Computed example of a mutant assay.
Amino acid sequence: MNIQELKNHFQLIKKYEAQEVNELLDFVKKCYIYNEITTCDYRNLVYELEILGAKTPELESSM
């Protein structure tokens, strides 16, 4: 799966186009958790999305 296929799958499932790469990153993670994509696809897509500027929110320490 490549980025364009991911965008198409996102639009098919969500019924709208992703506005940010972070939306696609969240979607990739969900797809991976539910075994909808392979580990190899997951790694490649996360890598490509990070190149495009996607970032995982950092958790704040609750100390």
Rank of each mutant, 00 (worst) to 15 (best):
M1L: 14
M1D: 07
N2W: 05
N2I: 03
N2G: 08
L6R: 04
H9E: 15
H9A: 12
F10A: 01
F10L: 03
Q11S: 13
Q11M: 10
Q11A: 14
Q11I: 05
L12H: 10
L12Q: 15
L12A: 13
K14T: 05
K14V: 08
K15M: 09
Y16Q: 13
E17A: 12
A18G: 04
A18Y: 03
Q19T: 12
E20V: 09
E20W: 09
E20H: 13
E20Y: 14
N22P: 02
N22E: 04
N22L: 04
L24F: 02
L24N: 02
L25T: 00
K29G: 06
K29Q: 13
K29E: 15
K30A: 13
N35Y: 11
N35A: 12
E36F: 08
E36D: 14
E36K: 15
E36H: 10
T38P: 02
C40S: 15
C40Q: 14
D41Q: 15
R43F: 08
N44F: 06
L45S: 03
V46T: 05
V46P: 01
E48S: 12
E48P: 02
I51D: 03
L52T: 05
G53K: 08
G53V: 05
G53M: 07
A54C: 07
K55Q: 05
K55M: 02
T56S: 04
P57R: 07
P57G: 04
P57C: 04
S61W: 08
S62Q: 14
S62Y: 12
